[in-house]
Amino acid sequence: MAFISIKNLCFSYAEETDPQPHINAVDDVSLEISEGEFLAVIGHNGCGKSTLAKHLNAMLLPDSGKVYVDGDDTADEEKTWDIREKVGLVLQNPDNQLVASIVEEDVAFGPENLGVDPAEIRQRVDSALKAVDMYEYRMHAPDKLSGGQKQRVAIAGILAIRPKCIVLDEPTAMLDPSGRSEVMSTLLKLNKEKGITIVLITHYMDEAVLADRVVVMDSAKVLTEGTPGEVFSQVELLKKHRLDVPQAAELAHRLRGCGVKIDRIPLTREDCVKMLEEAMK
């Protein structure tokens, strides 16, 4: 069985007694996430991707359907804390996730809640801060850091809990380009070097391109999924739902439309240049 397995998940924010028509925020979504993979979920605001994310660590419970984390049903209240220890959730606004006035004390917050031995907390905090390259800032106040740095501290705070999987709900939406690339390279490093499963909820397709697998959500449902290559070569479909595609892919797609023979859809700058070079020879 996959590490996280979502089966026919439905969820609505409306009360059952609400007279308004019942609209599901997530509608009959099934998805498997295996250990060690880097999954990106993209889609518009309000497509249900954030709601989906909150189901992965039992912050929300399904109206119908099931979510299993490492074999445990998230609806089982006795397992809630085990699940949150295994799946950490990082939120959009880095300011609102840091609870202590000193970086290292903030990172310690998670393990302290779990009742970990002080000596081990120290060790976890140091290694978590090193993993996100924020060790030298351990004595700083969070409000003096840049957005990207704050978000990395927030990631360290989750890492110190020693989860198997980190879910990030639009972690870069409020950051500037350098903050975004800091966070992305941190996530890639954690995934490749520490084998941590990453589920990245984002609306930046240039981030999704870096994932192993991409799930596209639209109107509470999964629109398509596959490797970045497979997903972004469906330029037509993505454009129809007004989602971004890398400019390289768009160019190739439109050249093809003009009758130019193009064998594959490139995603990166290098690949696109190579393809154009070959085509021009």
Binding site: P111, G115, P118
Partner: peptide, 15 residues
């Protein structure tokens, strides 16, 4: 809550 906070019971401190 995401960081497993559930009140003061059973908490330890780093320092």
């Amino acid at each position: 809550e995401c960081r497993c906070y559930r009140g003061g019971a059973g908490r330890t401190r780093m320092k």
